[in-house]
Amino acid sequence: MPVIAIVSQKGGSGKTTLALHLATRAVEAKHPACVIDTDPQATAAAWGDWRGDFLPPVVTSPPARLSRTIDNAAKEGIGLCVIDTPPHAEAAMREAIKVADIVLMPTRPRAFDLHALEPIADMLQMHDKKAFVVLNAVPSGAVRQIAEAQEAAKALGLKTCPVTFGERADFHRSSARGETAAEIDSRGKAAQEVSSLWKWVARHLEIKA
Rank of each mutant, 00 (worst) to 15 (best):
T107P: 01
A169R: 13
A190I: 03
T69M: 13
A92M: 09
T85L: 02
E193A: 02
E151C: 07
A116D: 08
R168M: 09
L80T: 00
A142L: 11
K75R: 09
A74I: 10
R177V: 00
H127V: 13
D122F: 11
P139S: 12
A116Y: 04
I83G: 00
R65E: 09
V138N: 05
A116W: 03
M93V: 09
P87T: 08
G188L: 04
D84K: 01
L135K: 02
A152F: 01
V194N: 05
D113P: 07
A191E: 00
M126T: 15
T107A: 11
P162S: 06
D128C: 12
T180M: 01
R94I: 05
A96H: 10
F112K: 08
S61L: 06
M123A: 13
V103Q: 04
D84I: 01
A89T: 05
L114A: 04
E179Y: 07
L104W: 00
D122G: 12
E179L: 13
M126L: 15
I78L: 13
K98Q: 14
F132R: 09
E90L: 15
T164E: 12
A149C: 02
E183M: 03
P63E: 07
D71L: 10
A91G: 10
A73V: 09
G79Y: 11
K159E: 15
R68D: 15
K159S: 14
E179T: 01
R173N: 13
A116N: 02
D170H: 07
F165I: 03
D122W: 11
L156R: 02
I102D: 04
A190F: 06
G77A: 09
V82W: 09
E95L: 13
A191R: 00
A181L: 04
G178C: 12
A64T: 07
S186P: 08
L80S: 01
A155R: 12
Q145E: 14
A147H: 09
N72M: 13
H88F: 14
R108E: 09
A111S: 10
K130T: 13
N72V: 12
S175H: 09
A100D: 11
D128P: 13
D185M: 02
I184M: 04
D170V: 02
A182F: 06
P162V: 06
A131N: 09
A91P: 01
T69H: 10
A182K: 01
P139T: 10
G77M: 11
E151V: 10
V103E: 08
I120E: 04
P162I: 05
V163Q: 07
